[in-house]
Design a binder for these strands. Structure first.
Length: 483
RNA sequence: GGCGCUAUCGUCUAGGGGUUAGGACGUCAGAUUCUCAAUCUGAAAACCCGGGUUCGAUUCCCGGUAGCGCUACCA
């Protein structure tokens, strides 16, 4: 298949949501796999709902996910003249006609049909106006829409690359609107004209367009042009199997970025929604994904968006980050949390790096580095109330931590073995379990009940910090004894 | 209502006329242990229902049911 051209065509009436992102990803993968062209087109023909800043946000989300485009972004709002031309061509050929029915009239008829439980379809009031009548109304300057004249018989079937052979009886398709009475094109006119002009070879889009496809094919036929190939993608649903929407929580790609999800993780997760890579490998590097991607491996059934699995996958990507990439990521995170210190770039570099590495295996999101991991990078941290409740229960802890601080100030060298030996010796001497001291110290040093191994933490923080924090905790416990 | 699409563990899915129906997330249990992760081991967990075709259907066909989509001068 040479000269593959695909496109992603979001409309700027909302942010890029995960469903759209998955569609974009599949188009992108298909293009990259075949060495084709990925076009970005903004479908902003709905002037009332389209917004410029939403378009910008969509582009940002795509770039964040690494979905770079080769052509565009083209905007439909900039091609209005072209659509009128195509519509005129269709009218000229008798494939479309002017419709003078008003929105109110149509609505009334539809409502009535509904009340009588009749299936409603445009009744063709203006389909066969006499030439005289038509001229008269046009001369009067009466506002009108342009409708496509759907053939009365026959059927329109096509071979979907995912769903196989499907289609519709022409008699079930109504004479749909091509141009609104305000002169703006509708979706159907826009897509067909654009896909034709942009020489799109494969239309890969959500399955919500499956039922629209026959209409568009009819238009290609009327225009005397070959149809592109179609491939529809199953929809993404919420946990209640309803179409994913705001009430399911975050749906926008940007929201996941804010939640500390890595773009690689979201991309990999999205790829698995409806597509199965060969072999059992679910964590799949981008290059392999491109190589392996096939439309024939796309499933036909809708998929529930599983946040748990995304979270797991994010942790997986976080854990496998190369040190250099990890440091860049953590640096950014600390900066945006405003706890980055210039010293981390120079004399405290080692502490920064070893802290980042210690946190790496248990991080679920990038925010964990600045939140639960805050004490590794800042001396300004709080004692988590839950941690205090769990590990600061004994009154004698104040004295023990004080004492531990004193012993550690003398430990030589200050390494994992020696600090541990020191702590265990103290525990034995005082007749308490080492675990008691370890857990209490963990809260003292990190403010958390959950943190990396205590002695690694000590070495990372360094003797001075450890001693200070133990003293601080002892003082705190002295003033606020456990109840 | 009409038209279209879909149907394998809770979820994402593999598979396919004869299989112990496979994997992943999650769940549970165990190992490890200073907490939590990570890691390792193990367990529970699925072919929507009814007909037909067939020696044999979860797989093929038909019907039902359910879910989703479309049914706009939204995209």
């Amino acid at each position: 298949m040479a000269d593959i051209r695909v496109r992603f065509a979001p409309s700027p009436t909302g942010y890029l949501h995960v469903g759209g992102a998955r569609t974009a990803l599949f188009n992108w993968l298909f293009a990259r796999h075949h060495g084709g062209v990925f076009i970005l087109r903004i479908e902003d023909t709905d002037v009332d709902r389209s917004k410029q800043d939403l378009e910008t946000a969509i582009l940002e989300s795509m770039m964040w996910l690494g979905l770079t485009w080769d052509e565009g972004p083209f905007r439909q709002s900039e091609r209005l003249g072209r659509y009128r031309e195509v519509a005129a061509e269709l009218v000229q050929g008798g494939y479309a006609y002017a419709c003078f029915c008003t929105a109110q009239e149509l609505q009334a008829k539809r409502a009535q049909a509904e009340a009588e439980k009749r299936a409603w379809k445009y009744d063709g009031t203006c389909r066969n106006l006499s030439p005289d009548e038509l001229d008269r109304r046009l001369a009067e300057g009466r506002p009108h829409a342009i409708r496509f004249r759907v053939p009365e018989g026959g059927q329109t079937i096509f071979d979907d690359q995912v769903f196989g052979s499907t289609g519709a009886e022409n008699r079930d398709i109504e004479d749909f609107v091509l141009v609104r009475s305000d002169g703006n094109p509708t979706y159907h006119l826009g897509v067909v004209a654009d896909d034709l002009d942009m020489r799109v070879t494969h239309v890969i889009r959500g399955a919500d367009h499956l039922s629209n496809t026959p209409k568009q094919i009819l238009m290609y036929q009327a225009l005397g042009a070959p149809s592109p190939r179609f491939a529809h993608l199953p929809l993404i649903l919420g946990p209640d199997k309803q179409r994913l929407s705001k009430r399911h929580g975050a749906t926008a790609v940007g929201a996941y970025k804010e939640q500390g999800i890595l773009p690689e993780a979201l991309r990999n997760f999205l790829a698995l929604l409806g597509w199965t890579p060969p072999e059992d490998k679910e964590i799949i590097p981008l290059e392999e994904m491109i190589k392996a991607f096939e439309l024939s491996a796309v499933s036909k059934s809708n998929a529930v968006f599983d946040l748990e699995k995304l979270a797991w996958m994010n942790g997986e990507y976080l854990r496998h980050l190369l040190p250099a990439d990890l440091y860049v990521l953590v640096e950014q995170e600390l900066k945006s949390a405003r706890i980055w210190r210039g010293a981390f770039a120079t004399e405290e570099r080692e502490r920064f790096e070893s802290g980042a590495r210690l946190l790496q295996t248990r991080a679920r999101t990038v925010h964990d580095f600045s939140q639960s991991g805050r004490a590794f990078f800042s001396d300004d941290f709080d004692y988590d109330p839950e941690a205090q409740k769990k590990f600061w229960k004994q009154v004698e802890l104040a004295g023990l931590l004080e004492l531990l601080g004193e012993r550690l100030s003398l430990a030589q060298p200050f390494d994992i073995q020696e600090t541990e030996k020191c702590l265990r010796a103290l525990a034995e001497e005082k007749g308490v379990k080492a675990g008691l001291l370890i857990n209490a110290s963990r809260v003292a040093l990190t403010g958390q009940a959950v943190a990396p191994g205590l002695f690694e933490v000590m070495v990372t923080l360094g003797r001075e910090r450890v001693v200070n924090r133990l003293q601080r905790a002892a003082a705190h416990l002295g003033k606020n004894p456990p109840v």
